[in-house]
């Protein structure tokens, strides 16, 4: 088992004819992901790496009724339209890779998705991978290996760094999810903790947070209050980040006195979550916890 994506995941790629869309369609196919259709308005009838392209997601879904997941590579000004289209076409899980979407837009389509019971991962995220089963994202597949650790992260390459350390420790991952680096994301750390709780394969969870907002604090509170049964290890990036400066991600900013790394670390520790001081230490802590 895994969460969100597995062998039964059938993917439509929105924006498949673009440079990124096409490149990652190939990479996903190589990994073994069941990509069955692509969509680019106006490019229906073409094919990309052998995958048929349709003008609309409705057409794709009616021709390939097994589709349950979409991955979006559409540029930021068109991405909201692509998301609404996917929600209305009945897609269950939407992975939104696109960066730089205005927050007023993402705030709206995320609320709409919630009302319709659709799960959005992102925006501004690397996607989801359940090693050995399916990769719906842009991560390098080889740093991941099948195993028992669930990863939730607000970051991209830092997720690969931690996953690689876990792989080298021979623990592997059940599912790794990059929930995105924007101020407002579809899935939160708490949403992911809930999914991992129900997943038998997952023995421990890693939370990779960073400065900005209070998602880590809320996750810590949730872990403490719900008596979360599985061990959780955290890493928080940005201990040296100055206040008021955006550190690459739209969401990575200490503003109005909240969102600094030290307070996130403190709240995690107060909730019984072990916090690693380096990415490699995450894997070491997991090894110790799972041995004992």
């Amino acid at each position: 088992m895994a969460v969100l994506v597995d062998k039964n995941t059938y993917v439509v790629v929105q924006g498949i004819t673009g440079r990124e869309g096409s490149f990652h369609t190939k990479a996903m196919l190589d990994y073994g992901t069941k990509v069955v259709a692509g969509v680019t308005p106006g490019k229906g009838g073409q094919s990309v790496h052998g995958i048929p392209v349709y003008d609309s997601i409705y057409e794709a879904v009616s021709k390939h009724q097994e589709i349950n997941t979409s991955i979006i590579f559409v540029p930021s000004s068109y991405a909201p339209d692509a998301v609404y289209e996917a929600i209305d076409a009945g897609i269950d899980i939407i992975v939104l890779i696109t960066e730089h979407i205005p927050v007023h837009d993402s705030m709206k389509f995320i609320r709409y998705a919630k009302l319709r019971g659709v799960c959005i991962i992102g925006p501004n995220c690397p996607g989801i991978i359940s090693p050995g089963e399916s990769k719906v994202g842009i991560m390098p597949g080889h740093v991941f290996s099948k195993g028992t650790i669930g990863i939730v992260s607000r970051s991209g390459t830092l997720t690969y760094e931690v996953a690689y350390a876990i792989t080298k420790m021979r623990l592997g991952q059940s599912t790794a999810v990059g929930i995105g680096g924007d101020p407002i994301t579809g899935m939160s750390m708490i949403d992911m903790l809930e999914l991992f709780r129900e997943d038998d394969e997952t023995k421990a969870v890693v939370l990779i947070g960073e400065i900005g907002g209070d998602m880590e604090e809320r996750a810590a509170e949730y872990i403490r209050r719900s008596g979360y049964e599985k061990p959780v290890v955290a890493f928080v990036a940005g201990r040296t980040a100055p206040p008021g400066k955006r550190m690459g991600h739209a969401g990575a900013i200490i503003s109005m006195g909240t969102g600094d790394a030290e307070s996130k670390v403190r709240v995690f520790e107060a909730s019984g979550v072990k916090v690693a001081s380096t990415p490699t230490e995450v894997a070491k802590l997991l090894k110790e916890i799972l041995k004992g």
């Binding site: 992260s153 607000r154 970051s155 991209g156 390459t157 830092l158 997720t159 760094e161 680096g181 990779i208 960073e210 400065i211 890493f235 990036a237 940005g238 201990r239 040296t240 980040a241 550190m247 690459g248 991600h249 990575a252 790394a261 380096t278 990415p279």
Partner: peptide, 10 residues
């Protein structure tokens, strides 16, 4: 990557 770069600073 923003997270990795921040982690490097740290």
């Amino acid at each position: 990557g923003a997270g990795l770069t921040m982690a490097t600073m740290d």
